[in-house]
């Protein structure tokens, strides 16, 4: 039981996808102008992570390793389509808030990365748990980013007016504010790592991308 719990916990803290593995940067920056959008995006990605993790794991002995990238993408795209139908039907407000970033979950490298790194090597239930942990870690980071940007940029929190006695700093809800808050948060994460002695090297893009092995990008970088 403890072992199962540690798989979930791993995704939330030790391998936090946004701040430590630097995966899924695009949605992290794009949708976090409001905390509630961050929550919606995070939960949407969690749904796809759990389902695709389980599916990839269940099919791991069937998919030939040469075509595993297209196979994973198709599996993920199927679940994203399912998710889009659900969101459009039941949460139209979230659908219009996330816009194009909802279908773009297909190419979110957290999901492809976990399929390659974890689900293709582990049992179905463990893979689903890994998806859950990763998803929760992603959601927490997105809500944190969204909260900071919403409070500083609009003076509200989850839509509630906080009555801050100063003008909101609109720059925080603009794109530059997104880069800035993400940079500062990552800096804080590194500061924390330095204190606890768990510093890891962060790599952006293909160098650190877990799917580099499948797409051959590793050589491209060198």
């Amino acid at each position: 039981m403890n072992q199962k719990l540690s798989i979930v916990w791993n995704g939330i803290l030790k391998e936090n996808p946004s701040l430590r593995l630097v995966l899924g940067t695009c949605p992290t920056l794009a949708v976090t102008t409001l905390a509630v959008n961050g929550l919606g995006m995070g939960l949407a990605a969690t749904f796809v992570l759990i389902c695709s993790g389980a599916a990839v794991s269940a099919l791991r002995n069937v998919i030939p390793s040469k075509v595993r990238l297209p196979a994973y993408i198709t599996i993920i795209a199927a679940f994203v389509t399912l998710l889009m139908m659900l969101v459009k039907a039941y949460l139209p407000a979230l659908n219009s808030a996330l816009g194009v970033y909802l279908p773009l979950i297909v190419v979110n490298c957290i999901i492809l990365g976990r399929a390659e790194m974890f689900a293709s090597k582990n049992k179905v239930f463990d893979s689903a748990l890994d998806g859950l942990g990763m998803g929760l870690g992603f959601t927490l980071t997105l809500v944190l980013m969204g909260s900071i940007r919403e409070i500083l940029g609009s003076g509200t929190f989850f839509g509630l007016d906080l009555h801050i006695p100063m003008d909101p700093m609109t720059v925080f809800i603009t794109p530059p504010g997104g880069f800035f808050v993400f940079g500062i948060l990552m800096g804080l994460a590194v500061l924390l790592e330095n204190h606890t002695g768990h510093r890891i090297e962060r790599r952006s893009s293909c160098e650190g991308c877990p799917s580099a092995g499948v797409c051959g990008g590793e050589e491209g970088q060198a």
Binding site: V22, V171, T174, P175, P176, G177, G178, F179, F180, F182, G183, I184, M186, G187, L188, V190, L191, N194, E201, R202, R203, S204
Partner: peptide, 23 residues
């Protein structure tokens, strides 16, 4: 930069300033 900002964090801040110029 300060030690904790080395690498990716400071790159993101630089990207913020580049993005600011595009606004």
């Amino acid at each position: 930069p300060p030690k904790c900002m080395e690498g990716l964090p400071i790159t993101l801040i630089a990207a913020a300033i580049t993005a600011l110029s595009f606004t």
